[in-house]
Amino acid sequence: MTEQPLPVAQPDTATSVFLTHRNLLFTVAYEMLGSAADAEDVVQETWLRWVDVDLETVRDQRAYLVRIITRQALLRLRTLGRRKESYVGPWLPEPLLTAPDVAEDAELAESVSMAMLLVLETLAPTERAVFVLREVFALGYEEIAEAVGKSAAAVRQIAHRAREHVAARRPRTTVSAADTRAAFDAFTRATETGDLQSLLDILAPDVVLLGDGGGIKQAIRRPISGSGKVARLLSTGLGRLAGAVSLRPAQVNGHPALVLWRDDEIDTVLAVGIAAGLVTGLYAVRNPEKLSHMARTTTLHR
């Protein structure tokens, strides 16, 4: 008698709906928190609340889930604020290894770029939530009002204020993917050779280099500004590391980056901001507690 295979259990409705929207929920949480680890925790907290919901009472399941995760992320934001006050050295967002399709969605790629996440850090928690939900995910004011516990009129005012704040600080961007690729390739060659003039040629005059070691790894403690200072630091620093590390290109937060490997482990993620064919920002994450999500591709979704 031939043994029959056991039937495969089908997920219940709540699980199926949650899995359908999971990548969206993670993306919302990550944009609000700038931390993949905390975003994962908030997604888990959202799941625990979702399984207790009577789905018969839910008119719009996606909106309901976004409302739950927004509230949980706002609670976590306040905890993160206290944690950052005692953080050793500059704080940078946690880098994500992303698939090529993130870069193809220009608005999503900009919203998760290191530069934009740092701009979002300057917003108050509710302003950040409103900006992300309105500008990135195109939610209506009524939906956002339910998520943040404000009136729709108040949300409109918050959204206007947040847009003006971000617009004044929004990083410059390059529209052409070809220009971005050419500039990144030129920066990669200059970095690999350590040639000072080549670095000066590809760095914007007002380029800024930021580092995050979290008090665990050595990193620059204050921003380095200006093409001359940044080029000399890169040239001498990489010169000392020659032979000890390998440089590999990667797609990080929807943008090109260099990953420095040492002894088969990631040592540093150097995210690269590019505008008008020049490198405008460099974000060096060395804190090993922030590098775990570089081991696998993270799917982001709007």
Rank of each mutant, 00 (worst) to 15 (best):
L258F: 02
A276P: 09
L77G: 05
E164K: 14
T193D: 10
R134P: 04
T20V: 06
G273M: 12
D38P: 00
T2L: 15
L238N: 14
E104D: 14
T193M: 06
T13P: 02
N23D: 11
V136W: 03
Q72N: 13
S227G: 09
G239E: 05
L120Y: 11
L203T: 11
A36L: 00
Q61I: 00
D264T: 14
V208H: 06
I202R: 01
R78C: 05
A9R: 15
P93L: 06
D54F: 00
V66P: 01
V166Y: 03
G215F: 10
A124I: 05
A115Q: 04
D60W: 02
V285Y: 06
V148S: 07
D38Y: 01
I68A: 02
A183V: 06
R83N: 08
P5E: 03
T180Y: 07
I202G: 01
V28C: 02
V259A: 03
R82T: 12
S198H: 13
E110H: 12
R163K: 14
A186P: 11
K290G: 09
A9H: 12
Y87K: 06
H21Y: 13
Y283I: 06
M114E: 09
K84M: 12
D263S: 13
L238D: 05
V208P: 09
N23W: 04
R172I: 05
E143F: 05
L75E: 13
V175E: 15
R248C: 07
T122Y: 00
L96F: 04
W47E: 00
W261P: 05
T15E: 10
E110R: 13
E107A: 13
N287D: 15
R296T: 15
M294F: 10
V112C: 10
E289I: 13
G237L: 06
A138E: 14
P7C: 05
Y64M: 05
I68P: 00
A124L: 11
A219G: 03
H21R: 02
D206E: 15
G211F: 03
Q10P: 03
S151P: 12
E31M: 08
R232L: 14
Q157C: 06
P223M: 04
L282F: 08
L199I: 07
L258M: 11
R189Y: 09
A231P: 10
A99P: 08
T236C: 07
D12V: 09
M114N: 04
R240Y: 13
V155I: 09
M294N: 04
P5G: 02
V136N: 03
P95L: 06
S225V: 15
L6R: 14
R156T: 12
W261S: 11
D195L: 08
W50V: 00
R189P: 09
R169E: 12
I202V: 15
T20Q: 11
K150T: 09
L282A: 07
I158A: 01
R76S: 04
